[in-house]
Lab assay of single mutants.
Amino acid sequence: SRSVIRSIIKSSKLNIDHKDYLLDLLNDVKGSKDLKEFHKMLTAILA
């Protein structure tokens, strides 16, 4: 869910600018399909 993804971003080791950017992107995501794609992208970034 959106709140879980937000929590993953906030607890990541990324610097604050990257976190803010990803949180802004997350706010722009519409629909469950796009949310799944965003989660895939985030997982790849944090891997």
Rank of each mutant, 00 (worst) to 15 (best):
H18T: 15
I8W: 05
L14Q: 01
L46T: 03
R6K: 13
L35N: 01
S1N: 12
F38K: 00
Y21C: 06
T43S: 10
R2A: 12
S32R: 10
H18R: 09
A44E: 11
I9D: 00
I5E: 02
D17K: 15
L23T: 04
S1E: 13
I9R: 02
S12R: 01
T43D: 09
L14Y: 04
L14M: 04
K30F: 05
L14H: 00
K19A: 03
H18C: 10
S7A: 08
I8S: 04
L14E: 00
V29E: 02
S7I: 07
D20E: 14
I5T: 03
N27H: 09
I16M: 14
L23W: 03
M41I: 07
I9K: 00
S1L: 15
A47R: 12
H18Y: 14
S12M: 06
M41F: 09
L26N: 00
K30Y: 06
G31D: 10
Y21I: 08
N27I: 04
L23F: 05
K10T: 13
L35V: 05
H18N: 05
S7G: 11
S1I: 15
A47C: 06
G31T: 14
S1Q: 11
K10H: 11
D24G: 13
K10P: 00
K36I: 12
V29H: 04
S32D: 14
L46K: 02
K13E: 05
I9L: 03
S7T: 10
S7Q: 14
I16D: 13
K40Y: 07
N15E: 06
R6F: 06
D24H: 13
L42T: 02
V4Y: 12
I8Y: 03
A47P: 04
S32I: 09
S3N: 14
R2H: 12
A47Y: 09
E37N: 12
S3A: 13
L25Q: 07
Y21F: 10
A44F: 14
K10W: 06
D20T: 15
N15Y: 06
H18S: 08
I45R: 02
D24M: 14
L25S: 04
D17G: 04
N27C: 05
L46C: 03
D20W: 10
K36T: 09
S11N: 14
L22F: 05
S1P: 11
D34H: 12
V4K: 11
K30E: 10
H18L: 15
S32V: 09
M41W: 10
F38C: 02
H39K: 12
K13Y: 04
D20L: 09
I8A: 07
I5H: 02
L23Y: 07
N27P: 02
T43H: 09
D17A: 14
A47Q: 12
Y21S: 06
S11E: 09
L35Y: 04
G31P: 03
A47W: 08
S12Y: 02
L14D: 02
K19I: 04
Y21T: 06
K19W: 03
N27M: 09
H39R: 12
I45S: 03
E37R: 14
G31F: 05
K19F: 01
M41D: 03
K13S: 12
L35T: 03
K36P: 03
K19C: 01
S1F: 15
F38V: 02
D20R: 15
I16S: 15
K40L: 12
K40G: 05
I45V: 10
S7K: 15
A47V: 07
K30D: 06
S7N: 14
K40I: 13
I8C: 04
L25D: 01
S12D: 02
F38D: 00
E37F: 10
L14A: 01
I45W: 10
I16E: 15
T43N: 12
L35A: 03
S7Y: 11
N27T: 04
K10V: 13
T43P: 02
K33Y: 08
S3C: 07
I16G: 12
L35P: 01
N15W: 05
V4C: 10
L26Y: 04
N15Q: 10
K36M: 15
D34G: 15
T43W: 12
K33I: 07
A44P: 02
I9Y: 00
K10Q: 13
K10R: 08
V29C: 09
S32Q: 08
D20Y: 13
L25R: 08
K36A: 14
K33G: 08
S11Q: 10
S11R: 10
F38S: 00
D28C: 08
D17Q: 12
V29L: 07
D34W: 06
R6Y: 07
I16L: 11
R2E: 08
S11D: 11
K19H: 02
V4P: 04
S11L: 11
L23M: 07
K13P: 09
D28G: 14
K10N: 09
T43Y: 10
D34F: 06
K40W: 03
D34M: 12
K10D: 03
T43R: 09
L42M: 06
N15H: 13
F38L: 03
V4F: 06
Y21E: 06
K19D: 00
I9M: 01
L26C: 01
V29N: 03
I16K: 15
K10G: 05
S7P: 00
I8Q: 07
L22V: 01
G31W: 07
L46D: 01
D17I: 08
H39P: 01
M41K: 09
V4R: 13
K19M: 05
L46Q: 03
L35F: 05
L42D: 03
L25M: 12
S1V: 14
L26W: 01
I9S: 00
L46N: 02
K36D: 09
S3V: 09
T43M: 15
K40H: 10
S32G: 14
K13F: 11
I45A: 06
K13W: 11
K40R: 11
K40N: 09
R2L: 13
K40A: 10
S7W: 13
A44M: 10
K36N: 08
L42N: 00
S3I: 08
L25T: 06
L35D: 01
D28E: 13
L46G: 02
Y21A: 09
T43F: 11
G31A: 05
S7H: 14
N27Q: 13
V4H: 11
Y21L: 09
I9E: 00
I8K: 08
K10S: 08
R6L: 09
S1W: 15
L26T: 01
K19T: 04
G31N: 11
D28V: 09
K10Y: 11
R6H: 05
K10A: 12
K36Q: 10
D24T: 14
V29Y: 06
S7R: 11
S32T: 13
D20Q: 15
D17F: 07
L42C: 00
I16V: 11
L42P: 04
I5F: 06
H39M: 15
I45D: 02
K40C: 05
Y21R: 10
D34R: 08
I5M: 09
S12F: 04
D28T: 14
I45F: 07
K30H: 12
D34I: 04
I9A: 00
L42V: 12
S12A: 06
S3K: 15
K33V: 07
S7E: 15
D34L: 14
L14G: 02
V4I: 10
L46E: 02
S12P: 01
D34Y: 07
L25W: 06
I5A: 04
I8G: 02
R2K: 14
S7D: 14
R6S: 10
D24P: 01
S3D: 15
K40D: 08
H39F: 14
H18D: 13
S3Q: 13
L25V: 07
D20H: 15
I16H: 12
K33Q: 07
T43E: 08
D24A: 15
K33H: 13
L22Y: 04
F38R: 01
S12E: 01
L23P: 00
I5K: 00
D28Y: 11
F38N: 00
F38Q: 00
L35I: 08
S12N: 01
L23Q: 02
D28Q: 12
L14K: 01
N27S: 09
I45E: 04
L42H: 01
D24W: 11
I9F: 03
K10L: 15
L22R: 00
K33R: 06
E37Y: 08
I8P: 00
D28M: 11
R2V: 10
S11K: 13
R6E: 15
L42Y: 02
K40Q: 10
D20A: 15
V29W: 04
E37S: 11
R2W: 09
D17C: 08
R6V: 15
L22M: 05
R2T: 05
K30G: 06
K30A: 05
L46M: 08
I16N: 13
D17V: 14
S3R: 04
L46V: 07
K13N: 15
K33C: 04
L22G: 00
K19E: 02
L35K: 02
E37C: 05
L23I: 07
I9N: 00
S1C: 08
R6W: 04
G31C: 04
D17H: 12
S1G: 05
L25I: 06
A47I: 10
L22T: 00
D34V: 06
S1R: 13
S12H: 02
I5P: 00
V4T: 07
K13R: 10
I45Y: 06
K13M: 07
L26H: 01
S3T: 09
S11T: 08
S3P: 05
D28W: 05
H39L: 14
I45G: 02
K36G: 08
K40P: 01
K30V: 10
V4D: 09
I9W: 01
K36V: 10
V4A: 13
R2S: 06
F38I: 02
D17S: 11
A44H: 09
S12L: 05
K13C: 06
L14R: 01
S32A: 13
I16T: 13
V4M: 10
M41S: 05
H39I: 12
R2Y: 06
A44D: 10
V29P: 03
F38Y: 03
K33W: 08
D28S: 13
D28R: 14
M41V: 05
R6D: 05
L22A: 03
H39W: 15
